[in-house]
């Protein structure tokens, strides 16, 4: 069986996940007679991120993984993906860190250049997030299980996961083949060829 995928050298914050799913029929809703109680839709959870924060996170995501010759994180709407993940998969403690992280990021922006994040140009945004990523890497290196997670690690993890498993990420930035049909364990590779979306 496929094993848990690890991201950035450690367990994903908010629980691990499987790289999953594929094939041709995109929206084949099927009737089912399942009656297990656990299958019933869980109670609707309160939203953690509002539209403004989602839009903010799309900008953060686009800075981490910008459009190049292929689409970037904003095209995949990673902000909306983050809103779902933070709402459903994060503990209340991590939710708080995430939401407060948005303010902290803005504070760091102001400290760097006197402007909030959305007012920075692309180069300034990249510079800021590069510094924040160095900070979170340093912090995470010595962090114990009990110590709080770093908000920027969350931002980056969810950006990567959300983008590379999204339709534009999987099919345009990476290569996706829902039904390979065969296996060849020795095919030529040349620098620049895109990686497979799922392994």
């Amino acid at each position: 069986m496929a094993r848990v995928a690890l991201i950035m050298g450690g367990a994903l914050i908010g629980g691990d996940y499987l790289l999953s799913g594929c094939t041709t029929d995109t929206d084949k809703k099927k009737e089912t007679t399942k009656t297990k109680s656990a299958d019933k839709a869980p109670p609707k959870l309160a939203e953690v991120l509002d539209a403004k924060q989602i839009s903010f996170m799309n900008e953060v995501g686009e800075t981490i993984l910008p459009a190049t010759k292929t689409p970037g994180a904003k095209a995949a709407d990673v902000g909306s993906f983050m809103a779902v993940m933070v709402r459903d998969c994060y503990t209340p403690k991590d939710q708080k860190i995430f939401v407060e992280g948005i303010t902290k990021l803005d504070e760091a922006a102001k400290k760097q250049g006197g402007k909030d994040f959305l007012s920075l140009d692309a180069a300034q945004r990249t510079k800021l997030l590069t510094a924040l990523d160095a900070e979170q890497k340093q912090y995470s290196k010595t962090k114990t299980l009990e110590q709080p997670n770093h908000y920027f690690r969350m931002f980056k993890e969810l950006t990567l996961l959300g983008f590379f498993t999204s339709e534009p990420g999987a099919t345009k930035a990476l290569r996706y083949n829902p039904v390979p049909g065969k296996y060849d364990g020795d095919v030529p590779y040349k620098k620049g060829d895109r990686a497979w979306a799922t392994t």
């Binding site: 996940y17 499987l18 594929c22 041709t24 929206d27 459903d88 959300g162 498993t165 339709e167 999987a170």
Partner: peptide, 12 residues
């Protein structure tokens, strides 16, 4: 037959 992006939590 779902694609990876059709799982709201990507299988998590």
């Amino acid at each position: 037959n779902k694609n990876p992006w059709e799982f709201p939590h990507r299988g998590g």
